[in-house]
Amino acid sequence: MKNILEVKNLSYTYQGENSEALHDLSFSVPSGSYVAIVGHNGSGKSTLAKIIAGLCSYKKGKVTLFGEELNKTNLPALRKKMGLVFQNPDNQFVGSSVRDDIAFGLENRQVPSEKMDAIILEYATKVSMEKYLDHAPENLSGGQKQRVAIAGVLAMKPELIIYDEATSMLDPVGKKDILDITFGLREENPDLSVISITHDIEEAMRADYVIVLNKGRLVLEGKPSEVFAHTEDLKEIHLDAPFLMSLIDNLKKEGVDVPSDVDTLEKLEEYLCQ
């Protein structure tokens, strides 16, 4: 399997700062995977997102995207293959209607206007916003705005989507909608990779792979059920364990010997009901 992203020995220091925002980071993201990067405020996760998106240029280390080492010359071409969705839904609208907003990116890529309507409808439908095409973005809920932002990104047919805290300002229903849509898209298109920078541990629990950052260093990585089993280590770096892991941990403290292959709530329920 080829890697869509490879990061090798990446360090980064902001201008005028003494300490490193990122220190000697190495990891890779296989094509078609959903990778959650978690860490509390100041862990360096947003810096990492900026570097991957080419918004920050790095000096130490190596970042390889889609098989090419990221540099100023190939950045525009590489950027076409990725889509970014940011935290604040209000900061990413350019159009005066949902339709215009999705059209914006297409126009930039010179998609002929006779093809545009069909494309807009297709992607609005994917995020269940097809009934809102003529609505003004400011009248939509936060979750609806983020869905439109995702439609705009998807219409560009990216190979990689990067979410930078894309659900953190949404209510639980909005959050769940975005995640369900994202996981649904991946079922349709197994080659689509997602890198999600997030505080939401329950979201990270659904990812294929989790990377935990603290103070610019990679401290844990692996499958969610492996990473989040380190409940004490997570506490030390101010991260909550997901509910399942925290419950298993507490049950063990109470003398209930939960087997290590229990990695879903369903399995835990089965085990307790034996």
Binding site: F243, N250, V256, E269
Partner: peptide, 29 residues
């Protein structure tokens, strides 16, 4: 939510004083 799942399977817990995951684990144990 988890207590409700267990209830459906016949494990009924007294939830009146349960506020945290720790409390829940104690009740289950």
């Amino acid at each position: 939510d988890f207590a409700l799942r267990l209830k459906k399977r016949g494990i009924v817990l007294d939830m009146s004083s349960i506020r945290t995951t720790e409390d829940l684990a104690k009740a289950i144990a």
